[in-house]
C-alpha cells in the first residue's frame, strides 16, 4: 500500500540504486550521499504514515528536513565546483543566506512551513548550477558528459529546483487564493522528484562505471 505513493517509490528506488552502486566507493562524498538519501526516505516515510494513518499535517518534519537538504546540496556543489574553480567563500555566503532566512521565517511563522526559505534556497541552487555549467563550458579539458557523474547530478538539481521554484511561485500567487484543486496539478511535484532522483540514479551508475574503469 505504501508504495502506491509515487514520491516515496521514486526516493526509495534512488536510495537502493545509490546503495548498490556506491557503498563500495572510497570517496566520502558518495558515502554521505547514501546517508542523505536514506535520511530523505525515512522523513518521507514518516510523513506519509502520519498523514495517511493519523491524518496529521507534518510541517515540522519538513522544517527539520530543509536545513539538512540545504547542507547536502551545498556540499554537492562545493564538491563538484571545487574541481573547476578556487572560489569557496561563495558557498558560505549562499549557505549563510539560506540558514538565516530559514531561522527568521521559522520564528516569524511560529514553526509553520518555511516556504520563503525554500524559494530562496532554490534560487541559490539554480544559480550555482548555472555557474557550474558555465565553468564546465569554459574548462579547456574535455570530459565525456554522457558518463560524467557531476553533470547528471547537477542536471537533476537544476531541473528540480528550477521547475520547483516556478511551480511554487505560481502556486503561492494564484492557486492558494483561488482554492483551485485539480488532480493534474498533483502530478507536478512527483514529476520533479522523478527527474531529480532519476538523474541522480543515473549519475550513481556513471560513478560506478567510472570506478570500474579507473580501478
Amino acid at each position: 500500500m505504501f508504495f502506491f505513493n509515487p514520491g516515496l517509490f521514486i526516493e526509495f528506488t534512488c536510495f537502493f540504486i545509490a546503495f548498490f552502486t556506491l557503498f563500495r566507493d572510497r570517496q566520502v562524498f558518495w558515502k554521505i550521499t547514501i546517508v542523505y538519501l536514506l535520511f530523505t526516505c525515512i522523513i518521507e516515510l514518516i510523513t506519509f504514515i502520519l498523514l495517511k494513518v493519523y491524518h496529521q499535517r507534518t510541517f515540522w518534519l519538513y522544517n527539520l528536513y530543509i536545513p539538512v537538504e540545504a547542507t547536502f546540496i551545498t556540499y554537492v556543489f562545493h564538491t563538484f565546483l571545487r574541481r573547476l574553480t578556487r572560489i569557496n567563500h561563495l558557498f558560505w555566503l549562499g549557505y549563510g543566506i539560506i540558514i538565516t532566512v530559514y531561522i527568521i521565517e521559522l520564528f516569524k511563522r511560529n514553526f509553520g512551513y518555511t516556504s520563503t526559505a525554500v524559494s530562496v534556497m532554490s534560487v541559490i541552487f539554480v544559480l550555482y548550477a548555472f555557474y557550474f555549467y558555465a565553468l564546465l563550458l569554459k574548462n579547456d579539458e574535455y570530459v565525456v558528459l554522457k558518463y560524467y557523474p557531476p553533470f547528471w547530478m547537477i542536471a537533476g538539481i537544476l531541473l528540480f529546483y528550477f521547475g520547483g521554484t516556478a511551480f511554487n511561485l505560481i502556486y503561492d500567487l494564484v492557486l492558494v487564493k483561488m482554492e483551485v484543486r485539480n488532480p493534474l496539478l498533483s502530478y507536478i511535484n512527483p514529476t520533479l522528484s522523478f527527474l531529480l532522483y532519476g538523474f541522480w540514479s543515473y549519475s550513481f551508475i556513471c560513478r560506478a562505471r567510472q570506478r570500474k574503469l579507473y580501478r
Binding site: 555549467y133 553533470f151 542536471a155 537544476l158 516556478a166 505560481i170 492557486l175 507536478i188
Partner: peptide, 24 residues
C-alpha cells in the same frame, strides 16, 4: 488557470533541458 499553470511548469522544465542539450 490550471492549464496555464501546467503549461508554465512545462516551459520551466523545458528551459533547463534545452540548456543541458546546448551544453552537450
Amino acid at each position: 488557470i490550471v492549464s496555464i499553470i501546467l503549461l508554465a511548469s512545462l516551459v520551466f522544465l523545458l528551459a533547463p533541458l534545452f540548456l543541458l542539450l546546448y551544453i552537450v
